[in-house]
């Protein structure tokens, strides 16, 4: 079972829920926590993994062999990302715009393009004391493109068929979120009952709908804001799987790096219930 935790709005509690859900499931079998928020990964603060393996994340960018290049401009024409420009007899390469798709290399009639690795960040793997398999990507500061790291991160993990894999997505509703959601059996969307929470929840619901991923919602910080999130979810028939109250006790615990279960042990059972509901929703969806 692959569950992506996403939100739309930032700071709603994705990582709190993702890390706590991972902890709640360790007695059920293999659990993976995969931090896809590569621009600001913070799952390690809650799970304290021993990060042992480190590999580079690279994008393979074109390098033009000047003696072979006739400046025909075919590479510029086929590049969907405008990572190449033709100026007179020179082809300019803009590494930060390159997605590494290989179209330029493939289409060059002179075989004048070689691909060279351009490092954009790190892929890290490890384990927590209580046995959660942990993986994360870290985008180098100033690099603009998180998507390739997320894609590569998903390739370095090797969960067994029965494992539960939790993808902690970045906030927002852009390419990096789509990449994090890709391949997920279920999207658990964390929101807060505020106008901003609702606005951004609608965006992420649009994405999971387009991607045909069944979704449920966690409403965090219950007690602030208004009733509009509940009204909207009821109207759209979207299940609310957990409500977490706005409380000083939880906020203090989270600020100290504790997950929900460490703060209030009753969350163990509540999060296991969430998982059971997800399982039945996914199986219901398939039948």
């Amino acid at each position: 079972m692959k569950i992506a935790i996403a939100s739309g709005k930032g700071g709603t509690g994705k990582t709190t829920i993702a890390a706590s859900l991972a902890r709640s499931l360790i007695s059920f079998g293999d659990v993976w926590y995969v931090d896809c928020d590569v621009e600001a990964p913070n799952g390690h603060l809650f799970l304290n993994p021993d990060l042992k393996q480190q590999t580079r994340a690279v994008v393979r960018i074109p390098q033009i062999e000047k003696e072979k290049c006739t400046a025909c401009g075919k590479c510029v024409e086929v590049c969907q990302f405008h990572a190449l420009a033709k100026v007179g007899k020179t082809i300019l390469v803009f590494p930060q715009l390159c997605h590494g798709c290989g179209s330029c290399t493939w289409n060059c009639p002179e075989n004048a393009i070689v691909e060279v690795p351009n490092p954009i960040g790190l892929l890290e793997r490890g384990r927590t004391d209580d046995g959660i398999e942990f993986a994360r990507g870290v985008l180098t500061i100033s690099e603009p493109m998180p998507t390739p790291i997320i894609r590569q991160l998903k390739k370095i993990i090797d969960p067994c068929e029965k494992a539960t894999v939790i993808f902690d997505s970045p906030p927002g509703a852009s390419c990096s979120v789509v990449e994090s959601l890709r391949g997920a059996d279920f999207a658990l969307l964390v929101t807060e009952p505020t106008p901003f929470g609702l606005h951004d929840l609608k965006q992420i619901l649009g994405i999971v709908d387009d991607m045909h991923i069944p979704a449920g919602v966690v409403v965090n910080r219950v007690g602030i804001g208004n009733e509009e999130v509940d009204a909207y979810l009821a109207d759209k028939n979207i299940p609310v799987l957990l409500r977490v109250p706005f409380s000083k006790e939880l906020a203090t615990g989270i600020a100290a790096g504790k997950n929900l279960i460490e703060i209030l042990p009753e969350y163990q059972q509540q999060l296991q219930n969430v998982f059971q509901k997800i399982t039945s929703l996914v199986h219901g969806e398939r039948s």
Binding site: F81, H82, A83, L84, A85, K86, F94, L97
Partner: peptide, 15 residues
């Protein structure tokens, strides 16, 4: 109309 690389597309056009 580009999601990214707008500057380069515009610059290439000017060139």
């Amino acid at each position: 109309s580009q999601s990214g690389g707008a500057e380069i597309a515009a610059a290439q056009f000017v060139i």
